[in-house]
Design a protein around this nucleic acid. Structure first.
Length: 215
DNA sequence: ACATTAAGTGATT
DNA sequence: AATCACTTAATGT
């Protein structure tokens, strides 16, 4: 473990935005430093969350429980981050919707949620910090969703259609699936199946030898 | 009507 | 995601 002074120093270098001296004193007063080994479970599904974790060292993988108990990766938090989800869980006094596992050996400063909550109104720097975290996590989640929802080829195909439509100044693209497939170096079947999806999603309309790009 | 070519589909790896 | 094998649909002669 680490002394209070060491913790504060470490804290200051990792969380430069939290530089309010009074806030640092508070953090030192109520914060508890905990160490985790790689793949240790920090927060499990359904566990009550009564503290906000601030990562001093290492990194933590946050996932959600999926359909058949499968883990769905949400995002990583690492030095200088906190888990936005844990905070929202605290606020509504719910049990954990998420699973937090140490990705590597990690050191985490636990802030009891009562304090974390009170600081929101007492310290601008704390409030900004938490809101920034929400913002960042939101974007990193959107990124991961994008990667899951659309394979490279989806976007490639849409780009291809849009480019062609733009250069030909028409949204009716007269080419066969086979031609498109050749241009994109994939099999004809792959194109047929993707176009079908795009049609179902209302992006295009299909006809023989043509693809009509919707607005 | 028939042949040809394009597109859709399921299975397999 | 590729390949295969097959079906179904559209189109030309």
């Amino acid at each position: 473990m680490f002394s209070k002074d060491e913790t504060i120093k470490w804290f200051e270098s990792n969380f430069p935005d939290l530089n309010d001296p009074k806030l640092l004193v508070e953090i030192a007063r109520v914060g508890v430093v905990q160490s985790f080994k790689e793949s240790d479970i920090i927060i499990d599904f359904g566990e009550a969350i009564d503290y906000v974790p601030l990562v001093l060292k290492g990194s933590v993988k946050i996932s959600r429980e999926g359909d058949q108990g499968k883990e769905i990766f949400l995002y990583y938090i690492s030095s200088g981050d906190t888990c936005a989800a844990s905070f929202s869980c605290c606020m509504v006094k719910k049990r954990s919707e998420i699973l937090a596992v140490a990705e590597e050996d990690s050191t985490i400063l636990m802030i009891p949620m009562n304090e974390a909550n009170a600081w929101l109104k007492d310290y601008d720097s704390w409030r900004n910090f938490i809101f920034n975290m929400y913002d960042q996590r939101m974007f990193s989640m959107i990124d991961t969703i994008d990667r899951l929802a659309f394979s490279n080829l989806d976007n490639q195909l849409l780009d291809y259609l849009e480019l062609k439509s733009h250069t030909l100044r028409t949204n009716v693209i007269e080419s066969t699936h086979q031609q498109i497939a050749l241009d994109l170096n994939v099999s004809r079947e792959a194109i047929s199946r993707l176009l079908k999806k795009l049609e179902i999603n209302g992006k295009v309309k299909l006809g023989r030898n043509k693809v009509i790009l919707n607005e």
